[in-house]
Computed example of a mutant assay.
Amino acid sequence: MAMIDRGGARGQPPEGEPGGKPDFRELIARPDVRRWILRVAFAAVIGMLFAIVFDPRIGLTAAVVAVIVDTVRRARAGDGGYRASPAERKTAKQLSGLTKKGWHILHARAIPRDDDGVSDGQIDHLVIGPTGVFAIDSESWDKRLPVRTLSHMRLFHGPFEKKDRLDEARWEANQASRLLSLAMGQEIPVQPSVAIYGPSVPWRVMTVRNVDVYSGGKARTYLRKRPKVLTDEEVAGIAAAAAKVFPSKFD
């Protein structure tokens, strides 16, 4: 089985792992951290508006209420009420035929935290097969805006840079790799990828910031055309571990 290159210097712990140098970019890429940043920013705006119109104390109260309401709303939405997006359903339908050929597809899987809780992060599709392990993020974008890349480092949808989507996809795959490696007792590489629906994607597969990007309609081809790196026994073992490690959002 292929081994992960953690990228750390010899004799030094890699970045982002215990004892290593904290990576602020990886922290910001965490979906739970990103949602709290947006939540706090939204509450601050609400608080300032109420403080200007009414009173600073009313503004503070409004900000606190905004945080509480948003937190409760998200908690209720995630409590057994998860629904797959149209893009996720398209990818799921496309990949369903692979199960008859020995592939294992886990949809909408939550990412556990080290404190035994569950983060806000989600792997849309965790795929285990002969060509490896993949974390696929299904995205639906406005078809009127073009998709382009710059030097394999920047991804754009029209005038909008999609660095946050690449960072999140890479974070999800890194977490999947870390947790599966712990469960299996050996390094399990997980390749991040983004399947785009809506606009035309002018390439088959483009690797941008270590994330594979392609048209959603080619997800199945993307998986099958890669070199085989896992035996049937390894695929079954990793799939069994993944089913235990990553809880389903549908439960």
Rank of each mutant, 00 (worst) to 15 (best):
V190C: 04
S119N: 08
R148N: 12
L27M: 11
E26C: 00
R34E: 12
A84N: 00
T71Q: 09
I123V: 15
G129Q: 05
T61A: 13
S193K: 05
V40Q: 08
R74D: 10
R113E: 13
L182D: 06
A29V: 01
A242W: 12
W36Y: 11
H152M: 12
P22V: 11
G217N: 09
V213M: 04
E88Y: 08
G121Y: 00
E26I: 01
R10G: 06
E233G: 00
A183H: 02
F250Y: 12
Y82R: 13
E172L: 01
H107V: 04
A183F: 02
P18K: 03
G121C: 03
A44C: 13
T149L: 01
R204L: 08
K225Q: 15
V194W: 02
D232E: 12
L150A: 13
G198R: 02
E17K: 10
K162D: 15
G11S: 04
I111N: 01
T207E: 13
P202N: 04
L150E: 14
F134A: 02
E139I: 03
W171Y: 15
A135N: 08
D55T: 07
K100P: 01
E187Y: 00
R74I: 13
K101S: 02
F54P: 01
R39I: 07
Q122S: 06
K218I: 00
A108N: 14
V64M: 11
S138M: 02
P202V: 09
R30E: 10
V235L: 06
L166K: 09
L27A: 11
